[in-house]
Design a protein around this nucleic acid. Structure first.
Lengths: 201, 201, 201, 201
DNA sequence: TAGTAACCGAGACGGTACGTCCCGTCTTCTG
DNA sequence: CAGAAGACGGGACGTACCGTCTCGGTTACTA
């Protein structure tokens, strides 16, 4: 009945885990994801390679956890889209913040790396979406539902689809760098998209 | 005047080039981009490794050219978004076709690989966007401009931004596999987005 | 004090070392030194290339050690030139044995390869001479010194030079294959050379 | 009746041949034989690779011809061992000259390279011995025969063997760099060896 | 309080692929 | 048609990492 080859996580070294997170994020920031190696992370963290292989299945998994850990620390409190009663204003605020985040190097490098890996690896994508992306998208659903109740958004709209009118364009510009990501762009997107969701006259 | 160490392209072997394209696309389709190696492409194409290194700077560059070549052959004629006078219908048609393409394995594998690499490599992204993506997006600009003239789209709209309301959401779902890409989804996107671009009452 | 990037030799795999010796000697015997490659040795030994590069600086160094190992096993006991009281007879015996050795394929191939490399590489020559050749030559010095004491060789002779009258000609014929190496030739050399070392009448 | 794949040597470019000789000797002197490549010789000589492959079968063959050409120019006239009536003096002179030659870099590099290749390649060795070495050794035979007639060397001696008492030791020291090659050493060798060839009292 | 089981840093190991260098052949164009 | 130039298929180089595997050493729970 017993068995399984999993190690005993109660004896896990917290110190090593944190060192690995830091080394992984630092290396991805400094030399990029492709040139970051497990050996490099281990060396930088002052850790044996086996300690990484024991707890993570891949380089991408290490980075995902490191990034989640980072995001968790960063997101202390601000886990809601504000509701001032003015939907357009609220969305502009959030989308502008997103634009700023995407333009900040500390966030950009690891997030891009994870996104790129996710594009190509369904397993990682699943984790990435489930643990990071979807929870954030659900915040939009929640805010849009509130707006639906106040009549700012017409009934019959599929909110899970509607939110993609806001996030999709931003993500697209960010991922493929087609054109610059600016506050003005964010505002414009909010303007056009919101118009599409408004009640028909 | 300049110089540069480029080889003499007039003496290039056409046979080798085509064999490399085919090998690259086949391998990416069969075993995935990550497991596709330059040695593997060379072996499959019956070509020396140096012949690849002589003409391309990286695995991604090979695949990009191979994919462009493929796209060029595929896109014989259909280089326009139809204009039946009914913008919504025309866009639904195009977006449904795009959905089908994204769901077809032959297109999916190399396109994903290139997109993933582009996310992480600005150089490749530049090529990818300039040679493949932007020309396609300009077709939307053209069609939307026609619609603007017939009054289906209100004046003052930035069409280069507007088109992203259609393509952004699709791209997002495709890249990160958040939710299934269906014709219904495409229709919904057209519905919501077009509403946002319509003349104000 | 120093440092150096040498690996930890206490953890070295004895099994791999022996396999590499055997593979190297076998390949040199079968296909010749020039066609023997490090990749080939590694493959034949069932070993990673890095395991060779970790412990040896070059193909020649591998072969030298393999050959030394072989010579060590072969030379169990016979580490002296016999002293029957008859110098000429003793030298004939030794030189005939040397001739036989040089004519035996198992010895010939690796020994030639090492000699050839030594001709061209002072570093290897140093090792080759110090570890293999000079110890053997000192046996001649010892035997000749005994002969000097019995009056068979005249005083005032530099024995380190004298021995070269015996070994030099043999080596020359062997290395450049000018003429066949026979027992009769060895006897003749002993005859002429010993005459030159005998006390003046 | 015609045939054979040999090119027409009457149309051969003398200019190219000389440039190849010079490039080969220069490269062997500067970077060593092992690092000298046919491509490198061609580039340095300003010659196409095919021009080398057309006329020579191997790198070693090029160098051999280049060296023979060099030796031919150097040996204008002095094609004899002097005969002053004093055999010992004559041999000391020749052996000292040989020592000097072996110690001169211009001679040393290509000669070592050819010797090393010859050790390992019977074909080249044949050429090397037949065209370069044996003619020189025959000069010793001639001089020793003269000495035999004057009674300085005893009858019954095989002169082709006898000469190796002089040249063998020198060659040995030179090839394997066991000990320094000096005039004193040459004198000693002449002394010991000649004693061995002298008529028995 | 000793024994022992596991994680840990370290790094050697059998491998795969890298990107480079040359090999010897072949092809194209020039004198 | 020899020769300069150099692209080609091929193979080995020496390096970098992969993921697995021992090897002491150091904890931290059991007997």
């Amino acid at each position: 009945m017993t068995d399984s080859r999993q190690p005993d996580s109660t004896r896990r070294s917290e110190r090593s885990r944190r060192a690995i997170y830091e080394a992984a994020l630092a290396l991805v920031g400094e030399i990029g994801y492709a040139k970051t190696t497990i050996e490099g992370i281990a060396a930088r963290a002052g850790v044996g390679k086996q300690t990484i292989y024991r707890w993570w299945p891949s380089k991408a998994a290490v980075l995902l956890e490191a990034f989640l850990d980072l995001a968790e620390q960063a997101a202390q409190g601000e886990t809601e889209i504000p509701d001032t009663g003015d939907l357009a204003a609220d969305l502009r605020l959030v989308l502008r913040a997103t634009v700023d985040e995407m333009n900040s190097p500390a966030y950009d490098a690891p997030a891009r790396a994870l996104a790129a890996e996710s594009v190509v690896s369904p397993e990682l994508a699943g984790q990435f979406v489930h643990k990071l992306l979807e929870p954030q998208l659900q915040l939009y659903v929640k805010r849009l539902r509130a707006a639906q109740e106040t009549g700012e958004v017409r009934t019959g709209i599929d909110l899970r689809i509607a939110l993609e009118l806001f996030t999709g364009p931003l993500a697209h510009r960010w991922l493929l760098r087609t054109l610059p990501l600016t506050h003005e762009y964010a505002d414009e997107i909010v303007d056009y998209a919101l118009n599409g969701l408004a009640p028909r006259p």
